[in-house]
């Protein structure tokens, strides 16, 4: 086993916490849902497409977004629920494009199934729009080589994993994740970076994602 290459720039692990802000906006049927999805802030679309990742870790990979869950469980519309659930979030580099896809999916469905709009949620089961306020801060963990990287990865919270994978990928409109970016540019670990970038993080629990990335890194370390 050779000594791991030292990076010029250390990888500083950040963490991110979020606070849910209630917008006081609600929807009872598909038309209202659609109208508000078009108008709410991007941080609201982000919240409803990413909340499940953190709150229902043990349910993963079942409910990928709140819109799909509400349409299926509350409005009882299985078909549209499935269409919304199967939107491949990882394909969308920006919240804007993800929002457009959600809007297009609902509009298309309503066009072919106008009666779907006649389903109403009960007063206590309306869809409530919420947005995420994100707080980003550096942690005390940093890595200058692959071994230190693996060590820190074991220690940081799932919030930190979340920040470097999801927040970086989508909300901050970076095309890749922070881990792959650093591994590629600072350690010249192109193949390793690609392997991590190829994972579909939306189909893992956050702890499962940590374990998977660790396994890939450990395999490289042992090579």
């Amino acid at each position: 086993m050779t000594e791991p290459i030292k990076a010029k720039e250390p990888f500083r692990f950040y963490t991110r916490w979020h606070l849910s802000e209630l917008l006081g906006i609600k929807a009872s049927n598909l038309e209202q849902l659609l109208e508000h999805i078009k108008g709410v802030p991007g941080s609201c679309i982000y919240h409803h497409t990413h909340r499940f990742l953190q709150q229902h870790q043990y349910l993963s990979p079942e409910p990928p977004n709140d819109f799909a869950y509400w349409v299926r469980e509350v409005l009882g519309d299985d078909e549209l629920g499935e269409r919304l659930a199967s939107i491949d979030t990882i394909q969308y580099k920006t919240i804007r494009s993800l929002r457009e896809k959600i809007v297009e999916t609902i509009e298309k469905y309503l066009k072919h199934n106008p009666k779907a709009n006649l389903r109403f949620a009960g007063e206590d089961e309306q869809f409530h729009f919420i947005k995420s306020v994100s707080f980003i801060a550096p942690t005390n963990e940093a890595a200058t080589d692959l071994r230190e990287f693996a060590e820190a990865l074991r220690k940081v919270t799932i919030d930190s994993i979340y920040f470097h994978i999801f927040e970086a990928h989508l909300r901050l409109e970076k095309g890749t994740n922070d881990f792959s970016n650093w591994l590629d540019t600072s350690l010249q670990e192109k193949a390793l970076a690609e392997k991590i970038a190829k994972l579909d993080p939306y189909t893992y629990t956050l702890d499962g994602l940590r374990k998977t990335i660790l396994k890939i890194v450990e395999k490289r370390l042992a090579a």
Binding site: W17, H18, L19, P41, S43, Q55, H56, Q57, Y58, K131, S132, V133, S134, F135, I136, R171, L172
Partner: peptide, 26 residues
Amino acid sequence: NNFLLTRHLKEYMLLFLSLYHPEDIV
């Protein structure tokens, strides 16, 4: 995962901080 005191402490501290930071990404 969601309803222990430690999560609550975290969110209250974020809430206090939000009073000094009006933006969505802080």
